[in-house]
Design a protein around this nucleic acid. Structure first.
Length: 580
DNA sequence: AATTGGTTCAGAT
DNA sequence: TGAACCAATT
């Protein structure tokens, strides 16, 4: 997908980025990349077209990322792919063939009863359809999230949005996985954005202006860069055998003119160059330069950059390789998500049925735990934890080692504050104020840590089975089972580890950053919770989560942690204690 | 010696 | 799917 090896080649120009860089600004989203990633978790349901809620998990994935952007005050503009353009047909056919092959294999494995092998193959049979896009669009509408369906390539549309002013609907950067965006001349691109907003960025003007960085693009302009990209092989045209990104760059650097490069190529490679390569090459370049896009302000079909008369003539007035021209009303209806861009017809209501009314709801079988903090003194703080559903008052437990020194533990204090905000009064809990001296900090990363309403508990049907408690499904990191995992829950089997090994791993991994490891144990001796706290851990992505564990009745006797055990029998309080 | 292009492996969800 | 690896090629 995209330009072969381009990202690897451009490595020296790629730098890590966090999307908060674009706070307050508009950022374009290549919908396909998130739809595709989001569909991984429900690929089998999608391929089999099962009518379960899981089928719509990709929407939750997408919305989670939208929420992430909104948290950072970024205005997302979601761009969908429209129709296929003719010169991409070969690539599309190829992908379709592979998908179908994988789907058939998957079905065979399913018949054999090998569900694991089948679901792996279903992932490779994944296809993001206009109907999936349409279902997402309905959610975007209800959430007032801006979107546009491109007449053809979303990449071209995104490049266009990157070129125009914010007031006219433009964006300052684009989030995608597709290296084509570089060839389209998109000035700022974020690749590989993770769930916390970390990614890799490339800025085109830095590429052209860099004086010493190799590979050098000092004498390049965008047309030469695009030429290099097409020579290396793109979705519109495979490369001449033996020409990869390095040779393409060398050729363009040397001759600094695409026509000359083409003739040299013909000379050197002779019959290895396909008959119509030069023509296809020029068409591919023209797509990257003048692809058809939708102007949301003028509400009309335009070219990415205006088409010179001379170019039109050189193609004998036939621009069908850009995709056929689309009537005005149709292109607008497509852009606004009212017509299927492939069929140019209204979306089939039946086909689109089954969308949950509230697709973003969390699963229901869980309890919320609310945590309250009090500040008896600056030397010592006490915590209350109670079950918000049952509204039972729980006993207060204290930690003596916290916040002895305000500066030293400010990060920890922040974490604790996050734990207790918003403060929810519940039962007969005493109202206690959050101390003023704890700074309310906006985290640099991962806004979704440790919110009280997101600490939840998953109870399995059989009470003797282990119960895994983590942060909210939506926001927290992976569930991790500590000792064993019931059969049939294979997705996390690979993470099966025991408590000690996790603790020691974490302690080791965090050795240099972690000031303290706090293990939180439930009043119920079977419930364990531990957390790693330090400023660094809170602000960096590497240290993760609160993991809680409830051990089955059989495991009660063998208490593994070294915490004290306190409390009254009828409460489900967590006792907090610290160690190490 | 550099590059291509095929293969394999781990990771994502 | 992509990144990393390796062997064949120029």
């Amino acid at each position: 997908m995209g330009i072969k090896d381009l990202l690897r080649f451009m490595k020296p120009y790629i730098e890590p980025i966090h999307i908060n860089k674009y706070a307050g600004q508009r950022v374009g989203i290549d919908a396909y990349s998130w739809l595709h990633k989001g569909a991984y978790s429900c690929s089998m349901e999608l391929c089999l077209d099962s009518h379960t809620e899981k089928k719509f998990q990709y929407i939750e994935y997408f919305i989670h990322r939208i929420k992430l952007l909104r948290y950072y005050k970024i205005t997302p503009v979601v761009v969908f792919d429209g129709g296929n353009i003719p010169c991409k047909a070969a690539t599309e056919e190829d992908r379709k063939r592979k998908r179908n092959a994988n789907r058939d294999l998957a079905m065979a494995k399913l018949k054999e009863g090998n569900v694991n092998a089948a679901s792996e193959l279903f992932q490779r049979a994944l296809n993001v359809t206009p109907i999936m896009a349409y279902q997402l669009i309905q959610v975007l509408r209800s959430e007032n999230i801006e979107f546009v369906v491109a007449p053809y390539e979303a990449d071209a549309q995104l490049a266009y949005l990157s070129k125009i002013k914010t007031e006219k609907g433009g964006v300052v950067a684009v989030i995608t996985e597709d290296s084509d965006l570089i060839a389209y001349g998109c000035p700022a691109i974020v690749f590989k954005m993770d769930r916390y907003g970390n990614g890799e960025s490339i800025e085109l003007d830095k590429v052209f202006k860099a004086e010493t960085c190799k590979p050098s693009f000092r004498n390049f302009d965008l047309e030469l860069f695009t030429g290099m990209s097409v020579l290396a092989g793109c979705d519109f045209l495979p490369s001449v055998p033996g020409i990869g990104i390095a040779r393409a760059h060398a050729l363009v650097s040397k001759y600094r003119n695409l026509d000359r490069v083409l003739s040299v190529l013909k000379m050197e490679k002779g019959n290895q160059v396909p008959e119509d390569y030069a023509k296809s090459f020029k068409e591919a370049i023209a797509v990257f330069q003048h692809a058809r896009i939708y102007d949301p302000t003028a509400k009309e079909l335009k070219h990415l950059t205006p088409l010179p008369q001379s170019l039109l003539q050189s193609f004998d007035g036939n621009l069908d390789f850009l995709g056929p021209e689309i009537p005005l009303e149709v292109v607008t209806a497509i852009a606004e998500g009212n017509l299927n861009p492939s069929t140019k017809k209204a979306f089939d209501k039946l086909e689109c049925s089954g969308l949950p009314v509230h697709p973003i709801v969390l699963k229901s079988n869980r309890q919320h735990l609310k945590v309250q903090v009090s500040a008896a003194s600056t030397q010592k703080r006490s915590f209350k934890v109670f079950d918000s559903h049952n509204a039972r008052e729980n006993s207060t437990v204290t930690t003596s080692n916290l916040v002895a020194n305000k500066d030293k533990y400010s990060g920890e204090a922040w974490a604790l504050q996050k734990l207790v905000r918003p403060l929810v009064t519940c039962g007969n809990a005493e109202k206690e104020n959050i101390p003023d001296e704890i700074p309310l900090k906006v985290p640099d990363n991962n806004p979704f840590r440790i919110k009280p309403e997101e600490i939840c508990l998953f109870q399995r049907e059989n009470p003797d089975e282990q119960v895994l408690v983590t942060g909210s499904e939506e926001y927290m990191d992976v569930c991790m089972n500590l000792d064993s995992f019931p059969e049939g829950r294979s997705e996390n089997l690979s993470r099966k580890r025991n408590f000690q090994s996790i603790c020691s791993d974490q302690a080791e991994a965090c050795d240099d950053q972690i000031s303290e490891v706090t293990v939180i144990e439930a009043e119920d001796p079977d419930m364990l919770c531990w957390n790693v706290k330090s400023q660094e851990s809170i602000n960096s992505m590497t240290v993760k989560r609160i993991d809680l564990k409830r051990r089955g009745a059989s495991a009660k006797k063998s208490k593994k942690s070294s915490g004290k055990k306190t409390g009254s029998k009828n409460s489900s309080i967590l006792n907090f204690f610290s160690r190490v």
